[in-house]
């Protein structure tokens, strides 16, 4: 068994240390630490359910070793918004009915956020490319696209006024 190491992580703005073996993926670590909003769907980068942001960029946490993200800023969907304080993407997904079984939703929202970070005014193709690594079996993506377009507009407006 490879040696565990105490790793300093910053998750959703919270700093913590966790004892992690070198062969543990970020997906496994996050779920062990109780971040159940990070979902496991394939463990090989085919489905995107486990996506999280690392310094604002979406990655598949199943294909990322925890040791390699030490000291970097990690964000799960719960870190974008929770309870009464929702992120515009979360609000748009809820209002558009873009959520069915919901298992792919955290990954979709993370992937969308990652894209909007660099492409605040995405066209249809931008959205499709950004979400092509997130499989959804329920929605047919139609309402997901509408939600992302709407959220992008809200976020642009927010930036202008904020």
């Amino acid at each position: 068994m490879a040696e565990k190491k105490l790793i300093a992580l910053e998750i959703n703005g919270r700093r913590l240390e966790a004892s992690v073996p070198p062969n543990q993926t970020l997906l496994e670590s996050l779920r062990e630490l109780g971040y159940f909003e990070v979902k496991s769907g394939c463990e090989k980068g085919d489905c995107g359910a486990c996506a999280v942001l690392v310094d604002g960029e979406a990655i598949d946490s199943c294909l990322t070793l925890t040791w390699t993200v030490e000291g970097r800023r990690l964000t799960t969907v719960a870190g974008l918004g929770s309870g009464e304080h929702l992120h515009p993407l979360q609000t748009a997904f809820i209002e558009h009915g873009a959520i069915q079984c919901g298992y792919c939703t955290p990954g979709l929202i993370i992937a969308a956020q990652s894209m909007l970070d660099t492409t605040p005014n995405p066209n249809d193709e931008d959205i499709r490319l950004a979400l092509s690594g997130n499989l959804c079996r329920c929605t047919g993506y139609t309402k997901v696209f509408a939600a992302v377009r709407d959220a992008a507009a809200v976020m642009r407006e927010g930036k202008r006024s904020g």
Partner: peptide, 21 residues
């Protein structure tokens, strides 16, 4: 009416617990 579903907020924020959670 096309109401927002009662299960949607929990799923959007990740607070919904699935069987494996």
């Amino acid at each position: 009416r096309p109401l927002a579903r009662t299960d949607a907020p929990g799923k959007a924020t990740g607070s919904t617990r699935y069987g494996g959670d």
